[in-house]
Design a binder for these strands. Structure first.
Length: 376
RNA sequence: GUGCGAUUAGUUCAGUUGGUAGAGCACCAGAUUGUGGUUCUGGGUGUCGUGGGUUCGAGCCCCACAUCGCACC
């Protein structure tokens, strides 16, 4: 796997690049739709490719391990074949899910002991078995096992948490080097920079993680309760620390405005449940602002969903129709909203790429952030 | 026709010894950041079937009427 920087913006940290994988090239900056359990909820794979323009999607180790199981994944020949997706897949390690979902968890030097949120059964993720599991899934990009430190943690807690993440990373990298891909194509892994909102810890974490980074590196533990300004500060701090030849992945972020601000601070890759989860609950992101489709004001608005939208749903259906579907509790509502939001997110990063290439990204970004954060 | 029961928010219902009304759902808003097809927060939207009566005061007690349900002729 190889990352090539194509262009760097003169007035901001924004960059364009190409990440070459066994399942095709990824043009950065990029947004990666989240497909936790082997599907981007409510969206056909052919729509992801042709209508939305997704170049890579996510899977989740925690959910696939608990819900599907390793035997079936292995028998299926890996996640690509199982879910019929021939472009790249990135899998999260499950460290975040243990932090956000498991009712009981215990972090030990050995690994992370947790109970399933589904049936309460006990499990352990170690760096070693986490590598093995992501090998079985067959992700193009595997994520290191880390502890996602809460945004409001004390320096003392963050210090200890980082030490654990660092030791897990060392073992993860060692085991990765000793194992082979199972399905005949290259897999790569990204280490994760933690350190909460503390500059000294973030820099230390970055320097340590860089020792294990090949094509790319991830920034984790942000957008987990800390103020957005703190997140931007951390990105500004890390931007000069990470070499230009590494792809930078900001995990779990965010709103369309977060994407543009992240790109301006040197981030190349994003993923977030927001376009799909919030979409399923009626929120639409557009170039003209944010709409809550459940609002009564759309009841008699028969104009097309989004005049500026790139998806077919934007022109096939009206605002009043989508509101009706949401109020009626129709599955189709979530499908249309997810399709629209993902198409918009991918359009945002495509437009960002275009403006970086053309050299006017910084100005365009400032104007655009104002526009897309309006409430309609 | 007679007897009994019911009638309170959009809906299903609660409402104490009489002190001008509450809950669930729905509805109206807001939140949601490495997805549990969610979850959380806020908002009561009312001619208490109608008309009289008793009372300082009636959703509640009394009378009549209306409508619905059940039972019996």
């Amino acid at each position: 796997m190889k990352f090539t920087l194509e262009k760097k913006d003169a007035r901001s940290g924004a960059r364009c690049g190409v990440l070459e994988t066994a399942h095709g090239n990824i043009h950065t900056p990029i947004f990666m739709p989240v497909g936790t359990v082997g599907s981007v909820k409510g969206v056909y794979h052919c729509h992801l490719k042709e209508d939305i323009g997704a170049e890579i999607i996510l899977g989740n180790t925690y959910h696939l391990y608990l819900r599907l199981g390793l035997d079936i994944l292995r028998a299926a020949g890996g996640l690509h074949k199982f879910e019929s997706w021939d472009r790249p897949i990135l899998t999260d390690s499950g460290g975040f899910q243990v932090f956000s979902l498991s009712p009981i968890r215990k972090l030990t030097p050995e690994g992370c002991i947790f109970r399933s949120h589904i049936d309460g059964s006990r499990h352990i993720f170690t760096p070693e078995n986490n590598v093995d599991t992501q090998r079985i899934i067959g992700a193009d990009i595997m994520m290191a096992l880390d502890e996602c430190c809460p945004g409001d943690a004390t320096h003392d807690y963050a210090r200890k948490s980082l030490d654990l993440t660092k030791s897990w990373l060392e073992r993860y990298a060692a085991h990765f080097a000793q194992t082979e891909p199972l399905y005949g194509y290259e897999q790569s892994f990204f280490p994760i920079i933690q350190g909460c909102v503390y500059p000294d810890l973030r820099v230390e974490a970055a320097e340590h993680a860089l020792e294990y980074a090949s094509a790319g590196i991830a920034i984790g533990g942000l957008a987990v309760g800390e103020p957005t300004e703190k997140m931007y500060e951390m990105l500004e701090l890390l931007n000069p620390v990470i070499p230009q030849d590494k792809a930078r992945y900001l995990m779990g972020v965010g709103t369309p405005a977060n994407l543009l601000e992240g790109i301006a601070r040197g981030v190349d890759m994003f993923d977030c449940v927001m376009p799909t989860r919030n979409g399923r609950n009626g929120m639409l992101f557009t170039w003209n602002g944010i709409m809550n489709m459940r609002n009564a004001k759309w009841e008699n608005d028969f104009s097309e969903l989004d005049p500026c939208g790139t998806s077919f749903v934007d022109h096939a259906y009206s605002k009043a129709y989508l509101r009706h579907l949401f109020i009626a509790g129709e599955l189709f509502a979530g499908m249309i909203a997810s399709e629209h939001n993902l198409a918009f997110y991918l359009d945002v990063v495509r437009q960002a790429r275009k403006h970086i290439m053309e050299g006017d990204f910084a100005q365009w970004k400032d104007e655009t952030v104002k526009r897309i954060t309006a409430r309609l």
